[in-house]
Design a binder for these strands. Structure first.
Length: 570
RNA sequence: GGGCCUGUAGCUCAAUUGGUUAGAGCAGGGCGCUCAUAACGCCUUGGUUGCGGGUUCAAGUCCUGCCGGGCCUACCA
């Protein structure tokens, strides 16, 4: 039995994520986790909230709450929405956990012992009115290059010139508007990534068939300009993991915290500890320590393309640099972005559909199916309401839902709600078995390779085969001349229904559960062969006709939603 | 500016890594079926592969120059 450690990029705490965020990490990770479990493999699937950093502090201030309280509440909100989408995390942790604090401090100590941490004294913009150092992008002013008045301290949005906050004319804080700013000396810890450049590059070069997107981004960072740069891993903030060297104070670093991008990936490990401490498991080290049972684990990470540098470079430096036998990632599945109706999803402008809103208007399966079957794997992809309505109605209602409906209702009217007696398969059935066997193999191959759109297409093709078979077998005709043959055909078709529930479960778990309940057969073992899988419902087995699995999206609904989500989120 | 990705049918995407006549789904058109959610099946229209050069027996695929879209560019996370 293979063992799969699966992590999704951890969503930031300051608000509810949109569908683009969902399809870029959590949802495909869940698909893979569900599939591997269904195949009978051992899976540990982890996700968490990423809670530290300036944006969290500001969001909390805006909500008028202490940041810890704000984060605790938002964690609840995100956890509930994740359940709504049926994201099957074994544990949904928090980067602010004690476990992560200790582990982050531990890694920092190990890295320092290995000579991979250096102190750097630098000047940063301090705002007296805000009482804090400000990241460059929280400072705005007039661009010295083009005169644009809302240029950010890191880059001018108008002329795209790279800036330094001191370059700005009339700089002010975007938080308070204050112009009472000064450059202050401050000391920070830097992770000496450059020392490990060769080791990193060798590691990346030996990774097998990673997505182009993943390796090209990593290579760029490794070789661009002067090569891989060292990176500041501390910040002057209150909210975060206090800078400590293991259990000991870090002289000169009092009052500082680690940078979120240092502690966030470490949460992948800490989350496994949280999983154990929550009583859900009893040994996290056999997933994370190659000296304690993790050498046969296959570790797969899922993330949007913006997260790739941290997962291919910084986090591996943390792991490798520690000199301890932690499990390194085996495969990084990265995604492009999902656009919304000709533009980008926008959190700030409320453009697009957010996870909570999506669940308010339609069940999770609709979103799961559409998003996964259109996952932005090779390039950015696009959500339009027309496309969504058409695809979901056709695939889920017409092809799959209607198949289940026509089969179960036909059987009920002619044979009652039990599986009828079944004779030997004829040529038509043998051909079906052969074709489906090939398509199932293809489906499994795509799922194994995490080729999501191709997997969805193969699954849909399997659904279509049921309709093709029914059309050709035409039990509504054969029943007039040859009731035994009709019975055989219907018994097979009922088994197809059951079979579809099992193989579709990773994509549409709720519908799969409904099918299993209706067929009164909770056996979800993955098919060993078509013969075996299509023989599980035996003659005489009772079932019930389910309600229509998927109601169609009407034109009125579509128009309504289109208008509702076009602009500002209320 | 630099780097990477991308451009294939009205729409969303394929094309075994240079190999026959560029394929699917949706949408459109025709026929069939009547079990079913006006569903299903079969057939079918539709392409100068963004544009111009080049390499090659052979180019959607490689090179080059334009044009368009996107992302990243290290202090948002």
């Amino acid at each position: 039995m293979a063992r799969h450690l699966i992590t999704s990029a951890i969503p930031y705490i300051n608000g509810i994520k949109h569908l683009g965020n969902l399809v870029g990490s959590q949802l495909p990770a869940d698909l893979f986790a569900r599939y591997q479990r269904a195949r009978g493999n051992e899976v540990l699937f982890l996700c968490a909230t990423d809670e530290h950093g300036t944006p969290a502090e500001l969001a909390a201030a805006k909500a008028g709450k202490p940041v810890a309280e704000y984060c605790a509440e938002m964690w609840e909100v995100q956890a509930r929405i994740a359940e709504g989408f049926r994201l099957s995390f074994d544990h949904f942790g928090r980067s602010s956990s004690d476990q992560n604090r200790k582990l982050t401090q531990h890694f920092a100590a190990r890295l320092d012992d290995a000579g991979l941490i250096r102190e750097v004294s630098e000047k940063q913009m301090y705002s007296h009115a805000d009482g804090r150092f400000l990241p460059d992008r929280y400072i705005e002013g007039t661009c010295p290059n083009c005169g644009f008045e809302s240029a950010r301290g890191d880059q001018c949005d108008n002329c795209t010139k790279q800036l330094d906050p001191v370059d700005l004319i009339n700089p002010h804080s975007t938080i308070s508007g204050s112009t009472d700013l000064e450059m202050r000396e401050t000391k920070h810890l830097y992770l000496a990534q450059s020392k490990m450049k060769d080791q990193l590059e060798e590691w990346i070069d030996t990774r097998d068939s990673w997505p182009v997107l993943t390796t090209s981004i990593a290579k760029k960072w490794l070789n661009d300009g002067d090569g891989l740069q060292d990176r500041g891993i501390t910040r002057d903030l209150d909210w975060g993991v206090p800078v400590m060297k293991g259990d000991a104070p870090w002289p000169g670093m009092e009052g500082k915290v680690f940078y979120v991008w240092f502690d966030a990936p470490i949460e992948y490990i800490a989350c496994a500890q949280e999983w154990v401490d929550a009583g859900k498991g009893d040994d996290w080290q056999r997933w994370w320590r190659t000296d304690k049972g993790a050498e046969d684990v296959r570790y797969t990470q899922f993330m949007g393309k913006d997260n790739v540098p941290f997962h291919t470079l910084s986090f591996p430096v943390t792991i490798l640099g520690s000199g301890e036998p932690w499990k390194l990632v085996d495969y990084i599945k990265s995604f492009n972005y999902l656009n919304y109706d000709g533009g980008q999803f926008s959190t700030s402008r409320g453009r697009g559909v957010f996870m909570d809103q999506a669940l308010e208007i339609l069940p999770a399966d609709y979103w799961r199916w559409w998003l996964l079957s259109h996952a932005p794997e090779s390039s950015d992809s696009e959500f339009t309401w027309e496309g969504f309505q058409q695809d979901v109605n056709k695939d889920l209602s017409d092809v799959l839902g209607n198949f289940i409906s026509r089969v179960t209702k036909f059987c009920r009217s002619k044979f009652g709600e039990t599986v009828p007696d079944r004779g030997a398969p004829g040529p038509l059935e043998q051909k079906l078995f052969k074709d489906m066997d090939a398509k199932l193999t293809e489906y499994e191959a795509h799922m194994d390779a995490i080729d999501i759109r191709k997997a969805a297409a193969a699954l849909r093709a399997l659904w279509v085969m049921g309709n093709e078979y029914l059309q050709e077998a035409a039990p509504w005709s054969t029943i007039k001349e040859n009731p035994e043959q009709a019975a055989t055909q219907v018994a097979l078709a009922l088994n197809l229904v059951q079979f579809y529930g099992i193989i579709s479960a990773p994509f549409i778990p709720d519908a799969a559960a409904t099918i299993a309940a209706a067929m009164r057969h909770e056996d979800t073992r993955w098919p060993q062969s078509l013969d075996e899988a299509l023989g599980r419902l035996e003659p005489g087995h009772a079932f019930t006709v389910p309600d229509n699995l998927f109601t169609k999206i009407t034109d009125d609904q579509r128009a309504d939603w289109q208008a509702r989500f076009a602009g500002t989120r209320s």
